[in-house]
């Protein structure tokens, strides 16, 4: 056992994901309380170049053709070996499509404790997780001997985990990666769409509070009156009321408009992580405890079904007047 913090670097098709840098920043904070080093773990194939800007004390790199793209089984096998050999104080993984596919399996396989939805660490090394759609924070001692932690964004800025000085890189060997039961067949590109919500300046965002597809016209009329574009939270897209290209959030797009008007959106972390780059967020939500009010600049608990038509009317009048 040592006091190091292992940070599992996530990358997708040749690009390091922001969560990796966020975790390096979190790892640095944690390493300060444990007195260990921050060790980035990079798995890939011909991917050494991805290590260049990682703010780590060193990088452990494993190269294998089976690691060229993420698959849960190959990653878990490789990480299990590395964690066993290094016995660090903590291993940080993304609370993401990648990290969450392997963290629980590693916990069960290695018999190590796991904390999920970690957002930050306190100066004395406690974890702080954000759960229940962003409504509850949970804090506790980092379990031992080695804690696995899956991290959500928001607690640290990705820039804090970037460095201009390339870290020292050591290669570790991959375990036998044969007989794998999961194989990547192909990637399917996202559908191209007429609008790119990531570039729009005025977004009218609808959430489950809109209740049904017919009511979407309320948002569409408002957007049209203002020259904005309608986008949505995940439940609205899952219902098929709007195409995936309009999805804002962790599994959709990150947006940074001048104004983001959220109606009937609770403000779950998976949604919020993609809207914090907006200049002004205005939230309409009847629940005064909705987490969206923690990130919005302006808010109102008015009922959207009363307020939105009034808003559209006034804009139309102002424009014609």
């Amino acid at each position: 056992m040592n006091q190091d913090i292992l940070v599992v670097i996530e990358h997708l098709r040749g690009q390091v994901s922001d969560i990796s840098y966020t975790m390096l920043a979190a790892g640095r904070e944690l390493a300060q309380s444990t007195g260990g080093s921050v060790v980035a773990v990079l798995l890939g194939h011909n991917s050494q170049n991805l290590a260049g800007d990682l703010a780590a004390d060193r990088v452990l790199y494993v190269d294998h053709p089976a690691l060229a793209d993420f698959t849960p089984e190959a990653y878990q096998k490789t990480l299990a070996g590395l964690i066993g050999e290094n016995q660090p104080r903590a291993v940080l993984l993304g609370h993401t499509t990648i990290g969450m596919d392997v963290a629980s399996g590693l916990s069960a396989q290695l018999g190590l404790p796991l904390v999920s939805s970690g957002r930050s660490f306190t100066a004395d090394g406690k974890f702080i997780s954000q759960i229940c759609g962003g409504k509850i924070m949970a804090e506790g001692d980092l379990p031992g001997p080695t804690a696995l932690v899956t991290m959500v964004p928001g607690g640290y800025k990705p820039e804090q985990g970037q460095s201009t000085q390339p870290p020292q890189l050591t290669e570790a060997s991959a375990p036998a990666l044969e007989g794998l039961r999961v194989a990547l067949k192909q990637y399917i590109e996202p559908e191209v769409s007429d609008v790119d919500i990531a570039r729009e300046q005025l977004l009218v965002a609808v959430g489950r509070g809109i209740q049904n597809q017919d009511n979407l016209s309320l948002a569409e009329e408002l957007a049209e009156a203002m020259g904005g574009v309608v986008c949505a939270s995940r439940p609205v897209v899952d219902q098929g009321w709007l195409p995936t290209s309009r999805l804002v959030g962790k599994s959709g797009k990150t947006v940074k408009p001048k104004v983001f008007l959220a109606m009937g959106i609770s403000g779950a972390p998976e949604h919020v992580e993609a809207i914090t780059g907006s200049d002004v967020i205005i939230a309409i939500n009847t629940d005064p405890a909705a987490p969206i009010f923690n990130v919005a600049k302006y808010g109102t608990t008015a009922d959207l079904f009363d307020l939105v038509p009034a808003l559209t009317d006034q804009i139309r009048q102002a424009k014609s007047g």
């Binding site: 039961r181 990637y187 599994s251 959709g252």
Partner: peptide
């Protein structure tokens, strides 16, 4: 399998 931004990975699972 979903990745951010609408990218899909087709995974064959035994």
């Amino acid at each position: 399998k979903e990745y951010p931004g609408g990218l899909i990975a087709e995974m064959e699972v035994t």
